[in-house]
Computed example of a mutant assay.
Amino acid sequence: MRFLFWFLLLAVAAVVAALAARLNAGYALLVAPPYRVELSLNLLLILIAGGFAALYFGLRVIVRTIQLPAQVREWRRLQKKDRARAKLDAAIVALLEGRYGKAQQQAQEALALPHSSGLAALVAARAAIDVRQFDAAEAYLSRPETQARSLSVPRLTLSAEIALEQGQPQEALRILDALKREAGMHTAALRLELRATQAARRFDQIPSLVDQLVKRGVFDAAQGEQVRIAAQREQLRALAHDAAGLRDAWSRLPESTRTLPPIARAAAQSFLQLGGDREAGEVLARSLEREWNSELVEPYGECRLPDATRQIEQAERWLAGHNQDAVLLRVLGTLCQRQQLWGKAQTYLEASLALDNHWRTHLALGEMLGRLGRSDEANAHFVAALRLATDELKRRR
């Protein structure tokens, strides 16, 4: 349709031009003594139009000829830039596929081309970190292309990860502090800071980091709680030689956290190492009252409380609701043996063996019978304890 319109328009223009030429009887006289040139006006107009067109196109050809070398250089630059971009794309795809060697190769080829982006060096560094080629990764990150301000965040993040992977959590935290000053803290940097803080054993700083990661959806509530509890447990274990620090950390924990089995066990073990048997016993008893956990019974039996009779009575109250718990029976036997209640001790220990043939119970029975002068029976239990303990070690291997 468009072609037909232009064809008709051109035909009309040609007809109008032909009619105008027939009606135009004028002429032009050009005098340059001794020459006289007489031309029809139509021919003069045609010559003027043709001359203008020739001059215009001639000038265009000259300008294009002059610009041709610059245009060739620009074309070549764009070709190299396109090749570099293609190499970078291939490097990113290889990195996402987990082909780290190929990712480095493609990134190096991109860097070898002029006008390459610093992003290629970052991709190569990321691939090198994943195969633990830390020297190569640091070399990539030190290239001039990566020093652009727009690339400071990924460069600092990768530098912090290199330090962390090399066992330098303090250096990683220093770099992350610089990153925080540069551009604030984003999610990936927060995750890295959590790892570095754990490695640096700064357990008191972990709960606040976990809260931020939960808000950003990195952890759900249950996962965040697990990480938080693990950090609090390790903090309590780390204070096993600092009585004041341990009591301060324990006092700052909410009551709901203190009665959690992992927390209670860690606190009790640290209190026991510091000679705080009474505090350890109270911690374990409160946790067991809230939620029964056989793993807490063993350390409760290790506590040497001032009122041993009351300790036995407490354990016997628990036995009313957990009479099939072999660990509780063994602990009761140990507590009775400590008070020289030989009959009750033997009864509890034998009941524990009936439920669980454990080497610790055989050992406790052997020690008690040895003190009572029943050497043959004691030796039999010692042999059984040794055999069972050896089997357990083999299974752990």
Rank of each mutant, 00 (worst) to 15 (best):
M1W: 13
L9F: 02
A25I: 12
P33V: 13
P34K: 06
L45M: 14
L45H: 05
I46Q: 07
I48K: 00
A49M: 07
A54T: 08
F57C: 01
G58L: 03
L59K: 01
V61R: 10
V63G: 02
R64V: 08
I66A: 13
Q71H: 13
V72D: 03
R73H: 14
E74I: 09
W75F: 06
D82Q: 15
A84M: 08
R85L: 07
L88S: 03
L88K: 01
A91E: 01
A94Q: 05
A94S: 14
G98H: 01
A107K: 00
L113G: 09
S117R: 01
A121C: 02
R126V: 04
D130W: 04
D135S: 03
D135V: 00
A137R: 01
A139P: 01
E145M: 04
S152E: 14
T157H: 10
E161Y: 05
G167K: 11
A183M: 04
F219E: 00
R228I: 06
Q235S: 07
A240M: 08
H241K: 14
H241W: 08
D242E: 03
D242V: 08
L246S: 01
W250M: 06
S256K: 14
S256N: 12
P261H: 05
A264T: 07
A268N: 09
L272S: 02
Q273S: 00
G275E: 11
R278L: 11
L284W: 04
A285R: 03
R286P: 03
L288A: 10
S294C: 09
R310T: 12
Q314M: 09
V327M: 09
V327D: 09
T334P: 07
Q337G: 04
Q339P: 03
Q339V: 12
L341C: 06
Q346P: 02
Y348V: 02
D356K: 11
L363T: 05
L365P: 02
E367F: 07
G373Q: 12
D391F: 08
L393R: 09
R396D: 01
